[in-house]
Design a protein around this nucleic acid. Structure first.
Length: 392
DNA sequence: TACTCGTGGTT
DNA sequence: TAACCAAGAGT
């Protein structure tokens, strides 16, 4: 398949040696002098307008690693309180490695993409065993750790050790897409964008350069209404010159989100305890606890669904009682409606048939367990019901 | 390659 | 308000 020709992406600054056959393309490339100017103006801008973020005070690769993982697909404003709390709970790599997964997931609760937390935990244990507890400094070793891809490796190694490693996160993608007026959605030109990021990187100051280009994307070259008049790169920005900065990056096509209706059980026993289960490690919300339930089949009532699902998943008989709450929630690629009912345990010992573990807990103890957001809403509904009326 | 994987902010 | 998007990686 022919690659879309994007001549401006053929930056040459890092390849000063070229033969004469390449010369015909020179007018379409970013000349070395332009690259030098882009670096200088960006770093000057960064000195005035760069953000002061908690993890930038540190050179500890562990702390920087934690920040990089939390920042994947997650806004800075959301990350900051989680980051601060994490470093008090797990101040060192070895502290994280010896922690229980449940503690780790509890500290991550609400951040989403929970594989990040499971991988962070697992990688900490890998480093204890295979790297004597010292965070590796070689790109190959870093990229072998679970949860660390090329961008995160570059982010860590440049920030912690000032290594000349390029990055290509959402900010950089958007900035570069506009800089060269990329005529296709960024996903179609990942290799070219990486090449451009490599070519632009200031190898004398890779840490500052990477932080600077991310700040530019976050505070000036924003997704909507970019502040081009304040941009140190507007003189060389192809999108700005063409007046099409608001049209870029080109949108990716996206399928509409399917919807599922779910029956959920809050099962009480005679001791006033509630039955919860721990989801399997792999897949959605892996390792987190939840109230058991399942998908409402076509033509099935919510009550019948709950009774059936509990029999299939836990091997027990229940009666389905009062409706508690409806929770609408959107995940990345589908939406759910949780129809939650109070239920009463009738017979049978709960078995972990389609989950990793089941447990009876009190409303007091339940805080120790990590739950997905939609289930936290259920717990809050239980609390309110308990303090106001209380008849279960 | 295309799909999976959370949640909150913003428009 | 529904849709888009955010310091991406694993499979």
């Amino acid at each position: 398949m022919p690659r879309t020709p994007i001549n401006a992406l053929k930056a040459t600054a890092s390849q000063p040696q070229r033969n004469s056959l390449d010369r015909a393309d020179d007018r379409d490339r970013l000349p070395g002098s332009v690259v030098v100017n882009l670096r200088e103006t960006l770093l000057l801008w960064y000195g005035h307008f760069g953000r002061d973020l908690p993890w930038r005070q540190s050179r500890d690769p562990y702390a920087i690693w934690v920040s990089e993982i939390m920042l994947q697909q997650t806004q800075v404003k959301t990350v900051i309180p989680y980051y601060e709390r994490w470093l008090t709970l797990f101040p060192t790599l070895s502290a994280l490695a010896i922690a229980e997964q449940q503690q780790v997931l509890k500290a991550w609760e609400g951040l989403g993409y929970y594989a990040r937390a499971r991988n962070l935990h697992r990688a900490a244990q890998d480093i204890m065993l295979r790297h004597q507890g010292v965070f590796p400094a070689s790109p190959a070793d870093v990229m072998q750790l679970p949860g660390i891809g090329r961008t995160t490796a570059g982010g860590i190694l440049s920030a912690a050790f000032d290594q000349p490693m390029a990055i290509l996160d959402g900010n950089v993608k958007r900035v570069l897409t506009r800089l060269v007026a990329l005529p296709v959605p960024p996903k179609r030109a990942i290799a070219d964008l990486w090449q451009l990021s490599e070519a632009l990187l200031d190898r004398q100051q890779p840490r500052d350069f990477n932080q600077a280009i991310m700040d530019l994307g976050a505070t000036v070259c924003m997704p909507h209404q970019p502040l081009c008049s304040s941009c140190p790169w507007n003189g060389h920005c192809e999108a700005y010159n063409q007046g099409i900065q608001a049209e870029l990056p080109m949108a990716e096509t996206r399928a509409p989100l399917p919807h599922k209706s779910i029956g959920v059980a809050v099962i009480w026993n005679d001791q006033g305890q509630i039955l919860i289960d721990r989801r399997r490690q792999e897949g959605l919300l892996g390792g987190l606890w939840e109230f058991p339930g399942g998908k409402v089949e076509p033509g099935e009532t919510v009550e019948a669904c709950i009774q059936r699902e509990i029999r299939e998943e836990l091997g027990i008989e229940i009666t389905v009682g009062d409706h508690l709450i409806v929770v609408d929630h959107a995940y990345s690629h589908f939406r759910v409606t949780l129809n939650v009912h109070h239920c009463r345990h009738v017979s049978g010992e709960p078995q972990a048939i389609e989950c990793d573990e089941v447990r009876w807990v009190t409303l007091t103890d339940i805080d120790q367990y990590p739950f997905p957001k939609a289930n936290v809403q259920i717990i809050e509904a239980l609390r309110h019901g308990e303090t106001s009326t209380d008849h279960h």
